[in-house]
Amino acid sequence: MSEHELSEQPLDTEIQTHINGRPIARRVRNRATLAQFLRDDLGLTGTKLSCELQVCGVCSVLVDDRPVSACTYLAVDVDGRQVRTVEGLACNGKLNALQSAFVENFALQCGFCTAGFLMMSTSLLERNPDPSEHEVVEYLDGNICRCTGYEPIVQAVLDAAGRIRAAGTSDD
């Protein structure tokens, strides 16, 4: 069944959203995923796709502060909501605490999973600014990395949490 066979009702929807704080109004296909919207319509290619079954975590973004898998989330569902992606983490070209900690701890190699880990880690630290190692592992267990063996990622998140707490403020 293709689009032209289903033409008795609209197959797209007008949405208004904020992406990394920037207001965006667009008409999107109902069938478009948030990942397609971000990557193909807005050119925000920092969000990657891999398993497309919500298990690898590569496409993790935050919608109204909740982590979601952009591969299995409709673009129309960001209507009226705030979306945060990896492109929104750095401030005026300066890496935030999590990004710096990932670089300094060698918590990435190929980097394809990294946006997802950063967004999930952002979500974790917003919920729990002082996580234990166990809590980090539990929260990030739904993200896959094939390069690092994970240990440097755990260290980076704990390191970033410490830096953010030491700075006394959330850095975003």
Partner: peptide, 9 residues
């Protein structure tokens, strides 16, 4: 349940 994203979604 699932992972943190599935729980949120």
């Amino acid at each position: 349940v699932g992972n943190a994203r599935v729980r949120a979604q």
